[in-house]
Nucleic acid binder design. Structure first.
Length: 841
RNA sequence: GCGCCCGUAGCCCAAUGGCAGAGGCACCAGGUUUAGGUCCUGGCCAGUGAGAGUUCGAAUCUCUCCGGGCGCACCA
């Protein structure tokens, strides 16, 4: 397309519109350069925000500024922009903001390598990406742009931290934490994947550190309950992942008394989901790394426990995660009393019990829990079946039975066959005897938010010897980062901020004495948990956001982004929203009404990666095929949720189609403004049907099918021009203009160029959605099929409003049907007018 | 181990219980063209992973199996 386009380029640049005779293609790059400045001067995507039209908030996950945009950005923005532009055409007042999630490690690492400030790398990349977004023609409102690393932004991140702390939702505690030895920082539970650092892939180790947490566990039940509002509007799998992550389980706390070596009795509580199997609890297991293990351990077993603990610590999380790993453990030399039968049972320590789930201690019921059974068999501990499921006794088979069955050796429960009743009755009895209570346990842990890195929002706390932890007063926010760069930022295992002694040394806001600033910064997920609120009033100086502006725009009507944020970002944002609701700052509890997770762009069946050498460069694709062809390829590839394999696609084909559509705009010979009434009816019907169907498809996010429908309309219009009603027919103009408006959602440059050739002023993006004439959606006749025994025997042209009775009569009179029936007796007739008759003989 | 999703032409994908094919890629042929490409027209190609069930009727609903993908995972 570039080879022979000299002439056309001149034509395009002169703006006089080439004729069909002169050329059959347009110069893509020239058209892009022609319209960009026009759009920018029109500023056509800034919402009026005056209530004149219904508001809609189109939100896309803001990018992290690492290098230039890549194929993934191109996909998500293409899909997102279809919706935003559709809403504009439908007459909504659309807010479609863009910003950058601009704190984070890559910038810091780059700064160390290049001996500069992280801001240098960060803001240079932001400018590169911003320029690419503009070239890509995304309908952003640039006036709302924000960067989380700007002091005007993180001032409010810090402000929110302090409000959370006032409510007891931000606190510091000393405990074992996940530590990434490469990034030299702690990680949230959510950032550890398969025992590795989610970011760099290094094996995560444990450290005992004093760290800041958000009390997200206080909101576990509400995070779960409010998902009811999202059902059907968020992808099921995301909801499933969140539910899974929150991990609610119902069960009971049961108290066991342990007779300590000292002669004292210590009451220890276990969590179990199967209190009904309490009679089968034949030993207890304490998490080896829990304090409790050492506390209850008999003196003569202490050495064995310490040896075991040393072994456990040597094993990494990776080893721990290996399945089918043999059970290990150590006998603590004390016994506990089973509260339901008074039996003395052994107390062991093992690493298969987790210190930070439930109470860190379990009652082991080997007959009905495979892990407990494996442990019992490894150490020759008793196994007692208390539920007879009809399967082989676990004691012999080595396979624990977990299903329903008849209770045996279980006191009052004996003979019962229903698990739910068994559980309920046991809890009742435990509560009556004061040995335990029914309870709910969550897998969700509190969110560890402090990081020992530089490029993040400083935690606005001062440590004073006299007053302890003191909040930085609101009027002293933001606590700005000191000017550190290059080697100053090298990871040392403590925050680089600690090295900035002038910065650390401060005075206590409370007593005025000498004090030290907290040297940790916040996880960047804190920044991204509220940016969608800030967009509503990005310049607001009285708070993180103007509550009135948020009331007008939030919750976001549609959030578009990658499924990689299915847990972390979305859970945290939901948590923030609920807390802000409880603070009276928001009148809703869920921030994102609907969620669309686009698939990934892959190549040759695999994720693009440097090591595989299968990366596709977005800039090169755009240079080769143009912005519109790349966008169209992304949108047309398949359902938005599916992965796109670039190797399966044809940007060349997309370009071919765009040229084909563009050619139509030059064929139209009627004047702009020509009344389509009286135009070719068949073509008008095709046009109006396409619009009606496109509406349904767009509402259902079935953009690929919408594109196919536009292609069909282009095809029938082509035929109408060449061998039908001819280019002067008003229906041809109507069809071409409709194609242009529909294409404006996907291919803005081509559409704008077509719009001009059709005699209109920019911008087609705001011209409005075509009005569907219902009369043109009705066919003169439709094809009804007649089946005999479910096999098609005849096709009939009938009126679309034919009645069931009439259709049956016509069908039965059809000679082909009569032949097929062959005089057999009709037993049943199914009529679905006007489409189908099925005769059962 | 628990949970979820997906198998339709050579390929990407339509068909929301009613004629398996809308659209595209690739391929083939004809027209246009000095030629190639572009462009226009036409064509080729599967019985829906396998089996069973429900139904007048199943790609679509149910079950089992096979194949592929994803999430969580010693979570008591």
């Amino acid at each position: 397309m570039h080879a022979d386009s000299q002439e056309e380029q001149q034509v395009a640049e002169s703006g006089t519109g080439p004729t069909v005779e002169e050329t059959t293609t347009y110069e893509v790059e020239a058209v892009q350069q022609k319209w960009r400045p026009v759009w920018e001067s029109l500023d056509c995507f800034r919402p009026a925000d005056d209530g004149s039209r219904e508001r809609r908030y189109a939100l896309t996950m803001f990018p992290y500024p690492s290098g230039d945009l890549h194929m993934g950005h191109a996909e998500v923005m293409a899909l997102h922009d279809v919706l935003a532009r559709y809403w504009w055409q439908r007459g909504y007042d659309v807010m479609n903001p863009i910003g950058w999630d601009s704190f984070g490690l890559p910038a810091e690492n780059a700064a160390i390598r290049r001996d500069e400030h992280p801001a240098t790398y960060t803001y240079a990349n932001i400018e590169t990406q911003a320029e690419s977004f503009r070239r890509y023609g995304v309908s952003f409102d640039w006036s709302r742009r924000l960067h989380t690393s700007d002091p005007e932004y993180y001032r409010w991140t810090q402000w929110l931290f302090l409000r959370f702390r006032e409510r007891g939702l931000a606190y510091r505690k000393f405990s074992p934490v996940n530590w990434c030895p490469v990034d030299q920082t702690v990680l949230a539970n959510e950032q550890v994947v398969q025992g590795m650092c989610e970011r760099c892939g290094a094996e995560v180790t444990k450290r005992e550190l004093s760290q800041w947490y958000f009390k997200v566990t206080d909101y576990a039940q509400r995070l779960l309950d409010d998902m009811g509002q999202l059902e059907g509007k968020w992808p099921d799998r995301v909801l499933a992942m969140q539910r899974n992550w929150i991990g609610r389980s119902e069960g009971a706390h049961v108290d066991f008394d342990i007779a300590l070596a000292s002669g004292e009795t210590r009451t220890v509580t276990v969590f179990t989901t199967r209190p009904d199997t309490l009679h089968g609890a034949t030993f207890m297991v304490v998490a080896a790394d829990a304090k409790l293990a050492a506390e209850v351990c008999a003196p003569e077993r202490r050495e064995a426990l310490e040896d075991y603990l040393a072994d456990v610590r040597r094993a990494s999380d990776i080893d721990r995660l290996a399945t089918d790993r043999p059970k290990s453990g150590v006998d603590l030399g004390v016994t506990a009393v089973n509260p339901v039968n008074g039996e003395q049972i052994a107390v062991w320590a093992s690493d298969y019990v987790l210190a930070d789930y439930g109470t860190g201690v379990i009652m082991a019921v080997p007959a009905h829990d495979q892990r407990d059974l494996d442990f019992a068999r490894a150490f020759d501990l008793p196994v007692r079946r208390v539920v007879d499921t009809g399967e082989e006794n676990p004691e012999e088979s080595g396979v624990a039975t977990t299903g329903d069955g008849t209770y045996v050796s279980s006191g009052d429960l004996d003979g019962l066959t229903d698990k739910a009743t068994g559980i309920a009755r046991t809890i009742e009895k435990l509560e009556a005897d004061d040995h335990g209570t029914g309870t709910v346990n969550f897998r969700l842990r509190d969110w560890l938010l402090s990081r020992q890195r530089f490029w993040g929002a400083p935690i606005p706390i001062v440590h004073c010897e006299a007053c302890g932890e003191v909040a930085v007063p609101d009027d002293q926010l933001p606590v700005e980062l000191p000017d550190l760069r290059g080697a100053d930022l090298k990871p040392k295992g403590t925050s680089p901020l600690a090295a900035a002694e002038d910065w650390v040394a401060t005075t206590c806001p409370s007593c005025g004495g000498p004090a030290a600033r907290d040297t940790d910064t916040m996880d960047t997920f804190v920044d991204s948990s509220w940016y969608f609120l800030r967009y509503c009033s990005p310049d607001f100086t009285e708070g993180p956001f103007d509550p009135e502006a948020v009331r007008r725009w939030m919750p976001a009507a549609q959030y578009v982004g990658g499924v990689e944020h299915a847990i972390l970002h979305l859970l945290y944002s939901r948590f923030f929203t609920k807390v802000l609701h409880d603070m009276g700052m928001l009148d809703f509890v869920e921030p994102f009404t609907a969620l669309l997770n686009q698939g990934q762009v892959i190549n040759q069946g695999k994720a693009m990666s440097k090591s595989l050498g299968n990366g596709v460069n977005l800039g090169e694709m755009i240079d080769l095929y143009g912005v519109d062809a790349v966008r169209l390829t992304m949108v047309f590839a398949g359902p938005p949720e599916d992965d796109i394999d670039w190797a399966d696609l044809s940007p060349q084909g997309s370009l071919k189609f765009l040229q084909r559509a563009w050619r139509l705009s030059g064929d139209v010979t009627s004047d702009a403004g020509t009344d389509p009434a009286g135009g070719d009816t068949a073509l008008r019907k095709a046009t109006h049907k396409t619009v009606a169907e496109a509406e349904q498809l767009l509402e259902g996010h079935r953009f690929n099918v919408m594109v196919a429908r536009v292609m069909e309309l282009v095809n029938v219009t082509r035929k109408a021009v060449d061998s039908g009603c001819g280019p002067a027919d008003p229906a041809v103009r109507e069809a071409a203009e409709t194609v242009t408006v529909l294409l404006s959602l996907v291919a803005p440059y081509t559409a704008e160029e077509m719009w001009e050739r059709l005699g209109h002023q920019p911008t087609v993006a705001r011209t409005g959605w075509p009005t569907v004439d219902p009369a043109l959606l009705v066919d003169d006749s439709v094809t009804a099929i007649v089946q005999v025994q479910g096999k098609v025997k005849a096709r009939l042209d009938v009126a679309p409003d034919i009645s069931d009775v009439d259709l049956e009569a016509v069908a039965l009179a059809d000679p082909a049907v009569v032949r097929a029936l062959d005089g057999k007796e009709i037993r049943k007739v199914i009529v679905r007018a006007p489409k189908l008759v099925n005769l059962v003989v």
